[in-house]
């Protein structure tokens, strides 16, 4: 069983950052926690450590870095394909995110 290192910045975060390249089926470990990867995840990218339902905040550094645009499962890659920034005028008019 391969186990990779990750960084949890703040205890309230729902993602960790991989410090090694991860493959589907690898275990990722940090402090007291661990998660099984559902997919390959590149170095420096984020993996969900809890399920994040569509529309909920992705939390890193203890604050929201954007909203999930799809249901994200524990162990999924969290990146531009399933997260969107909340900043910028006109965002509140965007109906694609509830």
């Amino acid at each position: 069983m391969i186990s990779l290192r990750a960084i949890l910045v703040d205890p309230s975060d729902n993602v960790v950052t991989l410090v090694q390249e991860g493959r589907r089926g690898d275990w990722v470990v940090w402090d007291e926690g661990r998660v099984l990867l559902n997919e390959d995840i590149p170095l420096g990218h984020k993996v969900a450590i809890y399920d994040i339902p569509k529309g909920r905040s992705v939390v890193k550094y203890g604050v929201s870095i954007g909203k999930a645009t799809a249901d994200i499962r524990q162990g999924d890659l969290v990146h531009v394909h399933n997260v969107r920034s909340e900043r910028g005028k006109g965002y509140s008019d965007d109906k694609s995110i509830s």
Partner: peptide, 27 residues
């Protein structure tokens, strides 16, 4: 661009694992 949350984050930032301007700013 009204959706400026993606504006100040470059292809290189995204390739390096940064997802949104909030994440980039917090770092």
């Amino acid at each position: 661009d009204q959706d400026c949350g993606l504006l100040d984050i470059t292809p290189g930032n995204i390739g390096g694992g940064l997802t949104t301007i909030e994440e980039k700013s917090l770092g």
